[in-house]
Design a binder for these strands. Structure first.
Lengths: 135, 135
DNA sequence: CAGTATCCATGCCGATACTG
DNA sequence: CAGTATCGGCATGGATACTG
């Protein structure tokens, strides 16, 4: 897809367009189940692995590892190993991660603000499809 | 998850927290493969079904239908049937859809702006893991 | 034109068990 | 403490064929 939704070029949107667009990857990361949650927790301060695991209920160690790797790969969080006994690894937001949280938070605020509209729309849709109207 | 990432309450984040949070659903919609693309196309004006299908390369009719239904259900787009021959159905952004595009566009702009950082991070990560350093 | 129906490959994600 | 390995269920999404 094109970078800025409001500034789309004319003509067809090719597969390459949104495969190459940096926004596509970012959007998908935002859409995955745990990234934003983990980022939000880390916004309150650095945390260890099991600490994160316990803080976020329902998050398995497997997905925690995978998500942390992904976020680290994109430079949104840092991973610091303290070679002690017991071993300690700290995860923290990077500067990039903090800046990323701004537009994400804006999106979250939009959702909260427009919750009534979203609910109303769903209710109306259900009402319309219940009788197979689809007009 | 909590509405505003920067205003998380203390204590563990329960499953209910992000199952009930309106942001979770919105985030997942943003993350799916075609929603934002379709929304972006519709930002340029109303379009018919096959028109959309042809405009967005790689998009199958099946996914187009599913995505349009989802967006309609959330009130982001409208669906208008013109009972003519041949039949014509117009999809267009609603007011809610237009307002939704603002934070999404902000996210897209963030991605474009920080592309160099994202690329640099990935390169650095690859370099670090290539030799199994993980320090 | 505007869909629906069916099948199938892939990937996300959780549960569980094991390791340094 | 901080992971990895393996398995399996379920959802996402593509290909193809058919319908009003």
């Amino acid at each position: 897809m094109s970078p800025a939704a409001t500034a789309l070029p004319p003509g067809p949107i090719t597969v390459d367009d949104h495969q190459n667009c940096p926004a596509t990857g970012v959007l998908r990361r935002v859409g995955d189940k745990w990234s934003v949650v983990i980022l939000s927790v880390l916004a309150r301060g650095a945390h260890g692995f099991n600490e994160l695991d316990r803080t976020v209920e329902g998050l398995s160690r497997r997905m925690l590892t995978r998500t942390l790797r992904g976020l680290e790969e994109e430079g949104l969080i840092s991973r610091t190993v303290h070679p002690s006994v017991p071993p300690r690894v700290d995860y923290a937001l990077t500067e990039l991660g903090r800046s990323f949280l701004e537009p994400v938070t804006a999106l979250g605020l939009w959702a909260v603000t427009h919750r009534p509209d979203l609910d109303a729309a769903r209710t109306h849709f259900d009402g319309a499809t219940r009788g197979d109207v689809r007009l």
